[in-house]
Every structure is written in C-alpha cells, then in structure tokens.
C-alpha cells in the first residue's frame, strides 16, 4: 500500500473533531475520491495525509512509514499536492512555477540544475502545455492553471498525488481533460491518487474507491460503486438522488441526478424565500 490512513481523527484546538475514525488505503495506480458536504473536512483530511496538519488520533502511513516521522522534504518527494487554487504576488512564468516542484529534491542552498529543468519540462510536456512554458502563470486560464499545478506536483516525481477539487472551477471539457489525465496517470505511472470532489459523477467515472464523509464526522469507504449509491448519497447530503446509466457506444456511464423536490428536510426548511435564512 502506498498510503494508509488508520483511525484518523482531526479537530482544531479546543473544538470538537471534524472527522473521526476514518480509515482507508490506496495502492499503486489506485484512485480514491473523497466526497461529502461543504465543511465535512475533505480538504482537512487531504492536508493531514501530507502532514500539513496533524491528526489528533490515528496515523497516516506512507509506504508503511508514519508520515510524521518523515522529514518534510521526504514527504514532498513522495506526495505531490495540488491545491484548489494558487495565488502568487509575483508573476512567475509557468516553467518557474513547475520548477518549484523540484524543491524537495534540492538542498537548502542549491538552485535547480539543468536536469531539474529537464524534469520540469517533461512534466509540462506530459500535460500538453508546452506552449505555455514562458507565459506568466497569472495569465493562464482556469483550466490551464490547474494543469500547471498538476505539472508542478508531478515534477517532484511522487508516488502519490493529492488533489483538492481538481475539477471544481473548470468548464465541462476541461473537467474531462483532467479526469482522463488522472486516469491515465494511475494506469501508466502507477501513481496513487486521492482527490476530493463535489461531483459524484467524477468519482464514478475514474475512481476505484470512494470515501463519503458526513457532516457528523464519520466516513464510509469502499469500492466506488458500492459506496456511491442512492441511499448513501441521501444519507450524507440529505438529498434524494437517482443514479442512472447513459450509453456511450460500448461503455455505459453512470451519472447521479439530484432531485430538487424534497431538497430541504425539516430542519433545513427555510421560511419565506429560499435565500432568506
């Protein structure tokens, strides 16, 4: 197993836990999707995996070693992290941004060598954005920016990739571009992938496993098809859904259709207008 999470519990100082008793494992080339309502701790869990945050209980193992016992640079070498957004004050070029992915491999006082530049360029090529190499990152579109951040994570040559809502701000086409790329990345490079998402469809489309986190702090994990069911989604999101299949040639694509009627249960029912809370 590349990443194992056992009995994980996290809470901010002096407050109740965000999630507890969460456990799962992701092996070579496997993709795990984390789903759940806003504020259930998806991003928090992701940050615990690469030790940006510390678990209150339980442990995260990277290739069998506790992540907190590893050096920061070693975690950076093994786990690539793709944040939801990136903001930099300075207009670095795409190549400069991707090159920063080599940081965990470089000593404190060293700058990237020609070989590092080569690796960064390969990562850029792999994502098909070579034409953007010298453009300032700030002048790339949302879809391109996401690809740049993935390239940066891959430049570290990691064994696992964590992505925080990689498809959230993208148009339909770009969503599919990212998903296909991630699927291929798992198949061809054997990289373990964990991503959070608000789209059950995306989980159904590429991930082998899924973790449903509820607002109460507990999780449900298993094979994607077993976890993402009409019943489970209703329990977690408090929303009736139908899962239907759409034919695309020989493949059938499963998609989740939310039903608006009954969207509000008794507790959430709003008086007056919908937006009048």
């Amino acid at each position: 197993m590349i990443i194992e999470v056992k009995n994980a519990e996290f809470g901010y100082d002096g407050r109740g836990s965000v999630f507890e008793d969460v456990g799962f494992s992701v092996g070579e080339g496997e993709i795990l999707s984390i789903l759940g309502p806003n504020g259930c701790g998806k991003t928090t869990l992701l940050k615990c995996i690469n030790a940006l945050l510390k678990l209150r209980k339980g442990e995260v193992l990277i290739e069998g070693k506790r992540v907190n016992s590893l050096r920061k640079s070693d975690v950076g070498k093994k786990i690539g992290y793709v944040p939801q957004s990136h903001g930099s004050t300075f207009p670095y070029s795409v190549l400069e941004i991707v090159l920063m992915g080599r940081a965990p491999h470089l000593g404190l006082f060293s700058s990237p060598s020609a070989k590092d530049v080569e690796i960064a360029k390969e990562a850029i090529e792999m994502l098909g954005i070579s034409h953007l190499m010298n453009r300032p990152y700030s002048q790339t579109s949302g879809g391109e920016a996401q690809l740049v951040l993935i390239a940066r994570a891959l430049a570290a040559e990691p064994i696992a990739l964590l992505l925080d809502e990689p498809t959230s701000h993208l148009d339909l086409k770009n969503q599919m571009v990212i998903l296909s790329f991630l699927e291929k990345l798992g198949e061809n490079e054997g990289i373990a992938i964990i991503m959070t998402t608000h789209f059950p469809d995306h989980a159904l489309s590429i991930s082998h496993k899924a973790l449903l986190l509820s607002n109460k702090g507990n999780g449900m994990v298993g094979n994607t098809g077993d976890v993402i069911t009409e019943d489970n989604l209703r329990d977690i999101f408090g929303l009736d859904v139908r899962i239907i299949s759409v034919k695309d040639g020989e493949n059938s694509i499963k998609t989740v259709v939310p039903l608006r009627k009954g969207s509000f249960d008794r507790k959430q029912k709003l008086k007056g207008g919908i937006y009048n809370s």
Binding site: Y81, H86, S88, G101, P104, F109, S110, S111, A156
Partner: peptide, 22 residues
C-alpha cells in the same frame, strides 16, 4: 545562496510546505 528557495517561500505557506520546505 537561498535565492531560489525564496521563490518557493513567496508562495502561500501551505503550498511551500507541500513542496517539502520547512
């Protein structure tokens, strides 16, 4: 000597940390 690392430091704290920087 640290000049390249300052690039990484100029990203958000979390991003810099995820790139293995203390």
């Amino acid at each position: 000597l640290l000049r390249w690392r300052i690039n990484v430091l100029s990203l958000s704290e979390e991003e810099a940390q995820s790139l293995g920087i203390n």
